[in-house]
Design a protein around this nucleic acid. Structure first.
Lengths: 223, 223
DNA sequence: ACCGTATCCGTACTTAGTACGATGTGTCAA
DNA sequence: TTGACACATCGTACTAAGTACGGATACGGT
């Protein structure tokens, strides 16, 4: 009986990366061990080493998979639209894979998706008319913001309406209000409110940056 | 002979944290093991457990030490000045301790220095006249930017003038220029230049954000 | 039927965190 | 002075995880 009843697909590099991402999504990055990954795929730990180079390689592959999920900026759109959309998309993807944020920038060997992504961003900015130096600023500044926001979002105590309650309670309980009056006031008066959403600030700040960059781009002589 | 020749000071929680920071600065976060730390302090590994709760506790303590190095924003200054100075300071501290950036936001239990720091920031913004909602935006947006920038800076391949050369060479070598034309062009024409400094973008983006926030603050009715 | 190649994994070594309990050292009261 | 108790130190050892090594298995082509 040649082709039946192999309940698990044969592992491949790609499948391994996907399973790793799924595991990290499900149980967090610290639960991602070679052994756990192998168990998930119903093979022995050592089997994986025939498809990947080791755990570092797995992490690299996961990062590239995450990049692949981000919408590429569309060079045919006005640069501001294109860049805004890709930043929104990036943030959304990072929110879906919170474990990836610390990895994104720390991996040394960029995969093809990563490079493609960066190339498309640069295309939008340069073809949009930004000078090379302004492009450099824009690129650095926007990615800093997006990554930084994603980091913070990834580390919110709990995501959801009652997140704030827990934090507030925790903070208030730890010390007398006089010690950190502004922190307490801010937490109680604002962050605690059920309709407060940290994520709402993302678009706000993004537009601040884009406004400024657009202004700089209009002035023919930037720099 | 009672009081001489004790070459090593007795370990204390504080000294352990300092030594840990020094070790991480010197050899990187992955080299920070309990054993290495103990060796550094000329005690057995288990000795440390009488002063700290375990490695997690050490990491928490290190983060608080890093926060302690950041200049608190001065509430007696105009808010923009105060906030700008603290952001510059934060960036500088994080550049000095690159290993700390991924830790800062991921630690769950903020230390006293951390809380003090946040409290001072909120004081500057609120007393500076920003509404509470605007303060929330400003806070989220600025910290995103600062942390994100620090992350990127911490992961620059090499810091120094010839960093760009290496990256450029690496990137160019990996594929034909047609694959990622904008990336190649950008790298060669700009990032490769010896006087290009990634860090120069920090102030640029920071001012974009502060400009926008200031504008929003002036308009009496912000959102 | 035979063999080479690709795949798979049992075993074991290494590094790291840390629990447990023994040993040592200093302090102080009787 | 001495006994006793507290505190500090660390030797030993267990566990988890990454992964090197080499043997076993299976499968396609001759």
């Amino acid at each position: 009986m040649p082709q039946q009843s192999r309940r698990r697909e044969k592992p491949t590099r790609e499948r391994i990366m996907s399973a790793a991402v799924a595991l990290a999504d499900r149980e967090g990055l610290e639960a991602l061990t070679i052994r756990a990954l192998a168990t998930d795929m119903a093979v022995g730990p050592m089997t994986l080493y025939h498809y990947v180079d080791g755990k570092e390689d797995v992490l690299d592959g996961m990062v590239d998979l995450v990049f692949a999920q981000m919408a590429l900026p569309d060079p045919s759109l006005p640069w501001r639209e294109a860049v805004r959309a890709r930043c929104e998309s990036t943030r959304e993807v990072l929110a879906r894979h919170p474990w990836s944020v610390p990895l994104l920038e720390s991996r040394r060997s960029p995969g093809p998706e990563t490079l493609r992504h960066h190339n498309a961003m640069l295309e939008c900015l340069i073809e949009g008319g930004l000078s090379i130096p302004l492009t450099a600023h824009a690129y650095a500044v926007l990615d800093s913001y997006v990554y930084g926001f994603a980091i913070q979002e990834a580390n919110l105590p709990v995501q959801g309406g009652e997140e704030s309650n827990e934090v507030a309670a925790e903070i208030s309980a730890a010390f007398r209000p006089e010690t950190y009056p502004y922190l307490v006031r801010f937490t109680v008066e604002h962050a605690m409110k059920p309709d407060y959403r940290f994520g709402d600030s993302f678009g706000y700040g993004l537009d601040l940056l884009l406004d400024g960059l657009e202004r700089a781009a209009s002035a023919t002589e930037q720099r």
